[in-house]
Design a protein around this nucleic acid. Structure first.
Length: 563
RNA sequence: UGGGGCGUCGACAAGCGGCAAGUCAGCAGAUUUUGGAUCUGCCAUACCCAGGUUCGAAUCCUGGCGCCCCAGCCA
């Protein structure tokens, strides 16, 4: 294969390889994928999933799926379920156990007590606003809290009472005592626990305090014996804190490694923005086929293999980048070219009467299911006097490079016959509504015994045998290459592609697809790859989602004509 | 003179002192019963800039410049 990518390397793999060589963790590799269940997973998460699970696979280690469920006000079971389904769908296996940060609440609490006893944590009564003021700014150091030097006893008492729900939300927090003048703002006495009088989806109302990310994350890694804790670049500033907690407690020390998150052209990849698209009804739902969520891509028809291939090809680095969505599209075309059965479907039908074909005759013509894979066999497609072809495949006044059907020109109907257009029928407004053609009976199957060539091959369906179906044509969700980059007061929402979905109601599909099942993928010849929608299809009436178009040379000709 | 990170083709990305990989996109051609697929060729005398070290620098050093992240009781 021309574009075969040799198993690639990256700086994280180099680190892992080196750690194995030096026996740093007794040769073990244990990673983790730690989503917060407050939204759906997207293609950016897929990069992380593939990295973490991929490393574990490659080095005979394991990767824990761990829910970072430390903030009950934002998290929901719906998201937990969706995330589990998505990771599974991508093809990864986390063994027999799912991990939850909330399983460590007890241990974390004990460690907090230990830090208090060591004089390294204190209960602070400053209000959120005061804490912000005391924190200082990026260029000025902070001030120490007046509560910083409370006695161990008082701290212990206060923390226990915070835990038991004796205080109002926001009235107190537990803070690490580090350095209010640090250049790294994360080290200016960061909050470890905040009061939330709120039930947690797993621990119920047992806790009235919940740990912050920095307090919970590294220690969760430590508890699980993670070797390489891989996260995105924005956590680089948090690494000193990650290390600090672990060092103060003198527990097993995993290493945090940061990489650059994925940005994809013509879409957005932030949970916040995706949530807005859903809430503001710019898309149907989290699994709208235009969404870059794994649920949306699955419904659109993307294969897990193509996403994994994509994740491999984009590489892993520390540089911020914007990957061209064309690469993702290439990956799914490449996969589906090998796998998808070819069928004929006419999206915008134009009636064609083959005037010299017998009125009631029906023939079944042999069609190849996949020229890339002969094991997929053949099928018979019905042919008769009245057929439909694509409107775009006829031009009364053809452009120079148009070599499809026009008056007087002979073309091939795929797997059927050569036909020649002899007459154009129009309505009162001059629109072409029907074509009369003749066929050459000698060309059955699409070959001419005299060897004469035609310039093009068209797909078609028999009018009386095909069935009608709804087909949804999806395009990029955003017209702008980088919708995150807004100018003059615009919002990313303003860049939504008004043409991101086009619904075609009366497409004519070859009969073999009548019973197509949800999730099945097909190539509509000469058009693109399509997937049977899993939500809106019914038994005997499938709805099709366009996954991606086929490459289209003719479209390029048209574009260059215009310019 | 706050802290941290990053600059290699239009987009990704290898490269770790010895001839600037590969992929996507683009362009040209071959081939084709999908204007698909496939195949071939072209596409960075040059790595943000300027100095320096060296026989030799994208790689090492120094100094600039540019871009990104951080002031949630979010993760």
């Amino acid at each position: 294969m021309r574009d075969h990518v040799p198993s690639s390397t990256n700086f994280i793999k180099d680190i892992v390889l080196n750690d194995i060589k030096t026996n740093k963790y007794n040769g073990k590799v244990i990673t983790r994928f730690p989503p917060e269940p407050n939204g759906y997973l997207h293609i950016g998460h897929a990069k992380s999933i593939c990295l973490n699970f991929g490393l574990a696979e490659e080095f005979n280690g394991k990767c824990n799926l761990r829910f970072d469920d430390t903030n009950p006000s934002k998290e929901e079971q719906e998201y937990v379920d969706a995330i589990i389904e998505d990771v599974k769908w991508l093809g990864y296996d986390w063994g027999d156990k799912i991990y939850y940060a909330s399983d460590y609440f007890e241990q974390l609490y004990e460690w907090a007590i230990q830090l208090i006893k060591d004089g390294k944590a204190y209960v602070c009564d400053l209000s959120p606003d005061e804490i912000r003021q005391y924190r200082g700014t990026l260029t000025e150091p902070g001030k120490e809290s007046p509560y910083r030097n409370r006695s161990v006893e008082e701290n212990l008492d206060l923390l226990e009472r915070m835990k038991n729900g004796e205080f109002a939300e926001g009235s107190r927090v537990l803070r690490a005592k580090i350095d209010m003048s640090s250049g790294n703002i994360n080290m200016r006495d960061p909050v470890m626990y905040r009061i939330r009088n709120e039930a947690h989806q797993r621990t119920g109302d047992k806790w009235c305090i919940y740990p912050m990310y920095d307090w919970a994350h590294g220690l969760s890694d430590s508890i699980e014996g993670i070797t390489h804790s891989i996260c995105t670049m924005e956590y680089e500033d948090h690494r000193p804190l990650y290390d600090w907690f672990i060092e103060q407690l003198n527990v097993y020390h995993p290493q945090q490694i940061e990489f650059a998150r994925l940005n994809l052209s013509h879409t957005v990849l932030s949970k916040r923005k995706l949530l807005r698209l859903v809430n503001e009804k710019n898309v149907e739902s989290w699994d709208d086929p235009r969404m870059p969520t794994l649920a949306g891509m699955r419904r659109r028809g993307y294969t897990p293999e193509s996403i994994r291939d994509f994740a491999e090809r984009i590489g892993v680095g520390k540089k911020e980048s914007l990957v061209d969505i064309a690469l993702l599209e290439h990956c799914v075309r490449k996969d589906l070219n090998k796998k998808a059965q070819r069928v004929m479907a006419v999206l915008r039908p134009l009636k064609v009467v083959i005037v010299n074909y017998p009125e009631n005759k029906v023939e079944y013509l042999e069609a190849i299911n996949n020229p890339e894979d002969s094991s997929m066999g053949i099928r018979d497609v019905p042919f008769s006097r009245v057929i439909y072809i694509e409107k775009d495949d006829f031009m009364e006044e053809p452009l120079k490079k148009f070599y499809r059907l026009t008056v007087g020109r002979e073309v091939r109907l795929r797997y059927a016959y050569y036909i020649k257009c002899v007459e154009v029928i129009k309505d009162d407004y001059g629109n072409v509504i029907e074509l009369h053609c003749t066929y050459d009976p000698e060309t059955r199957g699409g070959w001419s015994p005299d060897g004469r060539q035609v310039k093009s091959t068209l797909h078609w369906v028999s009018a009386s045998h095909s069935f009608n179906a709804e087909v949804r044509l999806y395009n990029h969700l955003f017209a702008k290459e980088n919708p995150d980059e807004t100018e003059d007061g615009n919002d990313f929402i303003d860049y939504i592609n008004s043409n991101s979905i086009e619904i075609l109601k009366n497409c004519c599909i070859e009969p073999s697809l009548k019973q197509a099942k949800a999730g099945e993928r097909y190539q509509f010849e000469r058009i693109g790859y399509f997937c049977v929608d899993s939500k809106d299809s019914n038994e005997g009436s499938p709805v099709f989602n366009r996954i991606v178009t086929l490459k289209d040379e003719w479209l390029k000709v048209l574009k260059s004509e215009k310019s």
